[in-house]
Write a protein that binds this DNA or RNA. Sequence first.
DNA 1: CTGTTAGCGCCTTCAC
DNA 2: GTGAAGGCGCTAACAG
Lengths: 334, 334
Amino acid sequence: MRDVAARLGVSAMTVSRAIRGDSGIAEPTRQRVLAEVAALGYRPNDLARRLRSGLAHGLVGLVVTSLANPFYSQLSVGVEQVATERGAGLLVASANGDADRERELVEDMSARRIAGLIVVPAGNDHRHLDPRQLEGAPVVLAATPPRDIDVDCVLVDDFGGTYAACRRLIERGHRRIGFLGLPASLWTGSERYRGYAAALEDAGLPVDDRYVSRHRGDIELAEAATRHLIGLAEPPTALITANNRNTIGALRTMQHSPTPVALAGFDDIELADLLQLPLSVVAYDAAEVGREAARLLFDRIEETTTPQTAARPARTQRVVIPTRLVDYPRVPAP
Amino acid sequence: MRDVAARLGVSAMTVSRAIRGDSGIAEPTRQRVLAEVAALGYRPNDLARRLRSGLAHGLVGLVVTSLANPFYSQLSVGVEQVATERGAGLLVASANGDADRERELVEDMSARRIAGLIVVPAGNDHRHLDPRQLEGAPVVLAATPPRDIDVDCVLVDDFGGTYAACRRLIERGHRRIGFLGLPASLWTGSERYRGYAAALEDAGLPVDDRYVSRHRGDIELAEAATRHLIGLAEPPTALITANNRNTIGALRTMQHSPTPVALAGFDDIELADLLQLPLSVVAYDAAEVGREAARLLFDRIEETTTPQTAARPARTQRVVIPTRLVDYPRVPAP
DNA sequence: CTGTTAGCGCCTTCAC
DNA sequence: GTGAAGGCGCTAACAG
């Protein structure tokens, strides 16, 4: 910048103004400056710029469990779309389900003075996600409502979706329905379980603990759990799987099983339409979860930046993304 | 920081030293400072820190086509693992196959003074990826070798993988084999096509242009192309698909087709083991592509940081990730 | 319209 | 072992 200014015999301030498109600068001057900038290949240092202007704007963080899970990669696609629209960069990190790791990541990001943070929390305790701990950067939770902190969130209709899926199985005549699920410590785990249990109860069916397996959502564990369930003396005739990893694990296991077990799962599965098996899934727009979370986040960021127009209370928001039940195969087999 | 210093009646310098674990500070002093830091919840501002110390360290960029494609999300998982190990943050962005967009993203990232950049280029022209244009930040290309610039890259064995896949179809007696591929302007597109064509030629078979469709790798286009190919007067009896999007498109289309067409595709497909169709895939570790790219990148970053130990020429590296041919169903049907 | 002064928050360098 | 000065690159705030 100094070089540019020196060469043109102007001050650094003039260069600064020209670059930013500030008003209060003569058009010819701006042209000269911009030409020289181009000639020298000078690019302003965003770090220094933000340091001075105070704004940490320009970088938002996203902490998920793992990008290897399509739910999270779709989510991040949505977040990225909105971030890009707003001219912000996206810092992503995977906590791999580890709450301690999550805390480290979040602290690291806040040290980097990100403008805001979207988190899919790995645990029950959200105190480390309090914006007051994070240099005031707004926080939005995805897939889980805040606990003991006051922030916006975007949820999926976990209860309703699972309820509908379980109901569908009941309508088809199933009476012994198992649940292959996530840990109760996870919001999604407990809500989806609740939907399952409620559907059974509303149908006058018992919730049989033998048919319920709650574990981390990973394919291997789901396979083992499925093997166990279908090996029972009186096995379930149908299973509800609590997320895409569980659905895949169940599908894999049942492929080698002689006894057919009906399946309904949370999360849509790519290629589900090509499986020859009947399968119902609770589908929803995961990218929209991300987009919505990002929108809420940027609204808050602007709110913080803007000089508090009036005394708007700005209550905490909670957006719920709807689900729909999809039956595969799409065209019912005869 | 000033607050902490003031409260303790020490200088900011002492606080700085305590935080960084600098030597030259008395242990009791450090303890007092750290206690006060914790009490006030003070967190150092990374931006300011880096601004002064010059180090752009701590943030690397990744530009891919789309995180919605499992190849790229796996790749980013690998990059993220290594970045995290090295204590760096990861800035991701999708160019969606648009070369202009890619250039914008890259420029934006370099304005943010990232320490290095990994790119899966969207086009043929790589001049905008020259480190000299990017404040000297090292660049590593993934999936595509550099063209007109001198940077490291990590490749997949596109030619060998496709060659093997095509050979497999030939071994199974196919003589009319189609190719459902990516644009020739993409490295992966042309290499995979080359592998296909070479396998045919080596088997004394003609490359019939009617059976070749080259288009952007997206599911809808692949479906249309497949419909076209199997609708030909003398349709191919087998298809090679150039990436996972094409494979899925072909699978979808062929599900509704009476004429069976054998399929072999580049990229493994989750759930391929559950499809009832025979399918061969060129599998490889996409996360390893990312890890390897990140390793190369951090090596270069250190090289830049380190005061040039000896006159190591540091030649440009090119790493190739191997592929293996996997036949589904794993246990061949009778 | 342009320049000067000062300082964002931290760290390097050199005194003490 | 600690502190004071100065500056990283840039831009508010005020001058002219």
